[in-house]
Each structure stands twice: as C-alpha cells, then as structure tokens.
Write a protein that binds this DNA or RNA. Structure first.
Lengths: 179, 179
DNA sequence: ATTGTGCATTCACCTAGATTAACAATTGAA
DNA sequence: TTCAATTGTTAATCTAGGTGAATGCACAAT
C-alpha cells in the first residue's frame, strides 16, 4: 500500500488536507465528485433517502479510498455525502491517477488488485443484504471490522447494516441475554 | 469491448465452450473458481442461503464477465453458483489475463475502466437494497435492463431484487391496476 | 451545578414483505 | 394430444424490522 501513497505524492494535482471531525467533504447534488485517500482518521460515505433517512455506504479508515464511483464513472450527479467521523488527513485526487500513463506496470497491477478487492467486498455486501438476517450481518461486521466498531457509534453501524439503531440495540440485547 | 475479446483469444489458457441452457458451471464449495466471459447467451450467478432460498447476484448477457470475485480475490471457498439461462458460448479464463504483463497500456486502462464501471454498478445495487422499497428497485431494474426483463423469468427478477416471486407479482398487479 | 445535546435502550404499536397454499396459465416432453 | 412440470397470480396469515415516543446516561459548554 506504501506505493499508492507515493503515487499520490507524485501526482501534482493531489493535495493533502487536514480536516476536523464533522466536516462534510461532498454533498449529494455537488457537481464536482472527488476521490479521497485517507492518510489518517476516518471518513464515511452515505446517502439520505427520500424519507430523510441516512444509509451509510462505507467507512474509510486509514489507507482506504472513498468516492462516489458511480457518479465519477457514469458522469451522474453526486448522490453520496462524504464526511469526517474523526479529525483526518486526506489527499483529494482524480481517480485516473491510479492508472497514470507514466506509472510502471507493476504499480498498475497492484492498483488493479485494489479494485478487485473492492469488488469482492461489495459482492459480499450485496449477498449479505439480500440473503442474511440482520443478526448475521452484524456478527459478520464485528468479525470483519473489529477495530472499526470501537471508533464508530452504534447508530452508524446500524445504518451501515441497513437497519435502524433501535433494531440493532434490541438485537444486541438479545445476543447478550442469550449468552 | 472488442479488444477484450482479442485479449481472450490471445490468451493460451482461455478456451471457448458451447453450453446448453441449464448447465451449471460452478457450484458453491467448488475449489477452482473460474471467470467467464460471455460471447453469446446469458449466465447468472447466485447463492443458496441457509434456508435453501436462491438469491441472484447478477446476470451476465453478451460481453459481460461473471465470476465469484470474492472467492478469487481472497482465496475463499466459492459461494456463488453460476449457470446458463440460455444456450451460451463462453470463454473461461484466469482473471489476471485482464492485466497481463504484455498487454499495452491502453488496453490495461480500458480494462481498469471495466472494473470501475462494475464498482459503480455495485454501489448502486447496495444503495438500492438499503434505501429503496421493492417497487423502486423494480422500476429501476426495468429501466436499466429493459432487454434482460424479456429474457428472464419474473421469479428470477424477484430474487435479483431481493424479494419473493409472489411479492413481485402482487407489486406488478398493483402497478397495473393503479394505471 | 446546570442546562443542553447526542447516544443508547426499551416498549407499544404498525407495515412491508415472507410464508403457505390453492389455483390458473404456459410450456414441453412423450 | 395429453400429462407433468414449470411458471405466474391471488389471498390469508405471520414476522422481522420500522416508527414514534419515553427514559436514562454521558459529556461538553456555560
């Protein structure tokens, strides 16, 4: 992953920024969708649906890339909000810099690997949302992202899982009682 | 997309196969996960959950690539079934051939583009599953894949959307009546 | 200390969609 | 042509999770 940082540093268009917790980097409807690489801290992306409810699409801790890929790729209006859950340091850059003409083949391959991994994770996400009850999604999340669960309030874990904070609370209650 | 076909043809490991409707190319639990490029016909990938219910992850008509990316990428056991919904002609290949050392930069970039697009589509899928009621997911599906809806039985559209065939049927009934 | 604000928990409802089952309509193989 | 199997429809329940509201807690700001 180090080499990605180097790529980003070498990119003249990439600029590092320090951000306070709570700062909103991108709002639904913005015309200029950006991509962010998180050096330190924690970002998240989310939508607000037609009923005003928040749904977290992903968390981005250190070394993750976060963006509204759909908006970038299909030139659609931005629909994802992106904000800071902790004081963070991020690099804002153009998505194409992962595959710059002057980067070596090895680096390109490594970056392609990153895309594959993300697709793999998204695949799992879709399958979980379709096929598993809330409790399974929760235990999977806790197993897969144990560090995240300490840094993120429960209500956000809930909206990441696709349920309400109340539902997660009662779920946790049941789990605790039955053990 | 033509160039992808050429890449596949040039790859010595890639082999073209003709398949009858109903053939199952890959089952959950198989050790050797493959990637398939669809030249003609229609494939799908799906899971069978703990209660024996089918959930379709994606359809792959002409020119699409279909695979259990999670299994390939993280060396996990295959969890996706892949089968033929129509008589098909497919090329089975190794995923790495999208980024072969001897392919030109332009081709690599184009292939990277394919990955971005897929991530964009998956993003939308997740957001729909989390944030939209079944009826919105259905109308979005019909708008986005109008040709597919003629080639695929309704019960499969339902399990792609994450609802039961009955639910989709009543949904369609309501929509027809209210118009 | 005191007020406020955000977070988690609990409870009493309500609703979208699942489940089960019965019944066409369509397809397809013998 | 006929019989069986696969699809789609409708309707009667059931349930996981949503909604809304009340309570208690932690902590930050004054």
């Amino acid at each position: 992953m180090e080499n990605l940082v180097n790529i980003l540093r070498a990119d003249s268009k990439a600029k590092s920024i320090s951000l306070k917790k709570g700062i909103i980097l991108q709002r639904a409807g913005d015309s200029n969708a950006s991509t962010f690489y998180v050096k330190k801290g924690l970002l998240r992306s989310y939508i607000i649906d037609s009923k005003g409810k928040e749904h977290i699409f992903m968390f981005a801790p250190e070394n993750w890339i976060i963006a509204d890929l759909e908006a970038l790729e299909f030139n659609e209006p931005v629909q994802l909000f992106i904000d800071c859950l902790e004081d963070s340091e991020v690099i804002s850059f153009n998505k194409d810099c992962l595959f710059k003409a002057d980067s070596s083949k090895e680096k390109i391959f490594e970056n392609a690997q990153l895309l594959y991994r993300r697709i793999g994770k998204l695949q799992r996400r879709v399958l979980m949302l379709m096929g598993s009850p809330a409790i399974d999604r929760y235990t999977y999340f806790m197993r897969t992202y144990p560090k995240l669960s300490n840094r993120v309030p429960q209500r956000m874990i809930a909206t990441y899982l696709g349920i309400t904070p109340q539902a997660l609370s009662t779920l946790r209650g049941k789990m605790a009682r039955s053990r």
